[in-house]
């Protein structure tokens, strides 16, 4: 079980089908195969780390039935990019108040990585990250989703995320009452 390879040895994705000691092969729900650095997979995903440690990795492609090929490609892409990036000081939260969730701000390349995704791809990626126990990728994707709704009205949020308004008038009024401070007009 060689989990802890040095960063320098982390390799570019290589489209090799045969088993390789430094990579693992993952299979999407629609049967596509993807290769990812074993070191990065184990470091970034608690689920994959568990599978690698437990020896339940299939050399012919470990089945990830819950993840489609587009999302899996993004996961693998993220792992490989992460393996090649040098963590910066920005990873340390600079917040000062007493009870700040210790979120780490996404790095520049991580922002770019999620910015180019369509809404559907982002949705699938956040679910894949959740399924695979990828805390850092969850940080980055949830950060992106929160940015998409920051400062918006309920109507605007529904529009961005294509959500159907399932409230009755009475319920909406109840929310306005309960959170009255947010609905004062100037």
């Amino acid at each position: 079980m060689e989990v802890d390879k040095g960063k320098g040895e982390a390799e570019e994705t290589r489209k090799v089908a045969e088993a390789d000691r430094d990579t693992v092969t993952l299979k999407s729900s629609d049967g596509k195969l993807f290769e990812v650095s074993k070191e990065a997979a184990a470091r970034l995903s608690t689920v994959l780390a568990g599978m690698i440690a437990g020896g339940s990795i299939d050399d012919n492609g470990t089945d990830l039935k819950q993840i489609g090929s587009e999302a899996l490609e993004n996961v693998v892409d993220y792992c490989n990019k992460h393996a090649n990036s040098i963590p910066s000081a920005a990873l340390i939260s600079s917040s000062i108040s007493f009870n700040t969730a210790p979120f780490k701000e996404p790095e520049e390349w991580e922002r770019k990585f999620v910015d180019r995704l369509s809404h559907d791809a982002l949705f699938d990626l956040v679910e894949a990250a959740n399924f695979l126990g990828m805390e850092r990728l969850l940080d980055v994707t949830c950060h992106k989703i929160s940015e998409m709704m920051k400062g918006k009205s309920p109507d605007q949020i529904r529009e961005v995320f294509n959500i159907k308004n399932d409230y009755t008038k009475e319920e909406l009024e109840e929310i306005r009452q309960e959170l009255a401070w947010a609905f004062y007009d100037d």
Binding site: S146, G151, I157, I175, L179, A182
Partner: peptide, 20 residues
């Protein structure tokens, strides 16, 4: 919840207003 935890408080009411 992960998304909500990253939102400024002033956007929480809008988040709640999106759907049940």
């Amino acid at each position: 919840r992960l998304v909500l935890d990253r939102l400024p408080w002033s956007t929480h009411p809008s988040f709640a207003g999106a759907c049940r």
